[in-house]
Design a protein around this nucleic acid. Sequence first.
DNA 1: TTGAAAGCGCTAACAA
DNA 2: TTGTTAGCGCTTTCAA
Lengths: 343, 343
Amino acid sequence: MPRKSRAGSDRPTLADVAREAGVSAITVSRAIRSPGIVSQKARAKVEEAVRKLGYTPDPAASALASRSTSTIGLLVPSLTNNVFSDVLRGVYDGAQDTRFFIQIGNYRYSALEEEGLIRAFLSQRPAGMIVSSRDQTDAARALLEQASCPIVQIMETSDDAVDMCVGFDQLASVRAGAEHLRACGYRRLGFLSARMDPRARRRLEAFRDAASAAGLHDEARIVTTPLPSSVGLGRQLLEQLLDRAPDTDAVMCNNDDLAVGALMEARARNIDVPRELGICSYNDIEMARQMVPSLSAVATPRREIGSRAIAMLLAEIESPGSVSERRVDLGFAMMARGSTSPR
Amino acid sequence: MPRKSRAGSDRPTLADVAREAGVSAITVSRAIRSPGIVSQKARAKVEEAVRKLGYTPDPAASALASRSTSTIGLLVPSLTNNVFSDVLRGVYDGAQDTRFFIQIGNYRYSALEEEGLIRAFLSQRPAGMIVSSRDQTDAARALLEQASCPIVQIMETSDDAVDMCVGFDQLASVRAGAEHLRACGYRRLGFLSARMDPRARRRLEAFRDAASAAGLHDEARIVTTPLPSSVGLGRQLLEQLLDRAPDTDAVMCNNDDLAVGALMEARARNIDVPRELGICSYNDIEMARQMVPSLSAVATPRREIGSRAIAMLLAEIESPGSVSERRVDLGFAMMARGSTSPR
DNA sequence: TTGAAAGCGCTAACAA
DNA sequence: TTGTTAGCGCTTTCAA
């Protein structure tokens, strides 16, 4: 049966708008996408027709014809983790008022799930991708390398980025924390860490190195677990640490949840922080700063990472090759507060 | 250095797979979408060809031809708020291993932004939508009512849901908190609330009603601010409350951040919790439970809301009309802990 | 500056 | 069970 308006979709199409405006479909398309290249008159007629019919473009048709979408994929290992909610915020704020949509994929700290998501996202021909790890499977890495859209890897700076990267030196940041504790005069340093994903593992390594270099390494004071991080877990880990090595005088925590938990456990045991026990947190989410005593912390630029990543991506989408600084180090800061003090 | 320019159309299509397998395109399509309806032999040939060519379907083409996508839109007012990160987790876990994708829209507590997002999402012909508010603009509400996909409104139970809803009785939950404080013997009840979106406002109203009914209402003890909630803000709000009404003996907080902040401020001022000041939190995220003393709280079923919402949606997408319980009340629980005590 | 024609890659509808 | 045909609504190309 020849062309005839199908039942079901009463939604106006580009052709309907064209008819209404008395121009061709392609003129409507141009008037919408690049108003600058059509005449004033045509544009006005199109705008009027669009308004009158309540026309909204069909993104699927657009994607099919143009072979590109307005989707930006964002892959994160966790949605509960406060770290990533800050990154998310930076990304979403940066994408606000652009034609782009953020689509989040949560791979739950599984490299295999991540690979599946990368595959699925790329099949949509995204305008760009932001990925949170540099620990992809080989297949995932290959997919990213073959991708035809710009890609930003976030959280770490690395020399072997697929395309662009923005983050900070994770190892140096942990060393700064250890050094802070040492400089305060603490000598029996513990380390608490949950969920040993590759990044957490590298940070633990960095702590070992730093402690060793200072002659303060004691493996008995390193307490880790594969469980996901939480405040309650921080309490448990400190308990374990103190069972094993009661004379520990300071503890570095691999994230804020654990540090808050450690602080609470210390309080429950009437251990004086910072006098009897120094606590240094990692990431520095707002809550950590508001504890009593306020937690000293290695502050990481999570939100900035998100906003910088999306900015780089948008610039690169706009004009490929325009981003000259393709490897951005946003640094970190050691915030000395009440939970540690010179002794 | 610019990244690779235009992608070649080297990507295999359905037609390529069909040629390789020696069957027609539609058979490939069927073998992929509903393997059950093609012969064993054809299926095997198709699977082999798919593997050999590394074929991935193009979702845009599929969406255009079938007039439907595998996208599920999820609209939340905030990404930082812990409340919604729990909901997100429930939704994502439920969508895991299905063919559906979750696409999040963050309307940042703005009804106007929400309307824009609803419009944008619906133009994509989503398979379903989950929306977090019942306070849409009239236009947004109209869009939802005309939508041709199932819709779940979450967080509150309401009688005028657009389609389905899952949540709990927000007003009763706050009344339960107020009643708990009264039952403990507290008599001069305060209330702290940040960001007065419509839901927060309704909860404040419910608190006023409950306090009034118990003869315990005192407007001077109600401290609110339009600022977004944070632990630091909880500290400030308690400070304001105690400036205004120093004899306040208990405080209900409109969420956990504020309650933790209030607890910290009390600690900084050496106010004994629960003896001198009772604190009741709202939502009950894990952190609240781990404080010292542990925070009493009205626990809300955030994760369950997410998983139930996605389950209802998937069922309804699968077979429209199959969900009989279209209005689900998941309840709440008053958790009495150390931050309040009978006196 | 505008338009006509030709698909983009897939699926609905019908036919065999 | 399998295939044929005709689009889905848009953008690309090329021409005017």
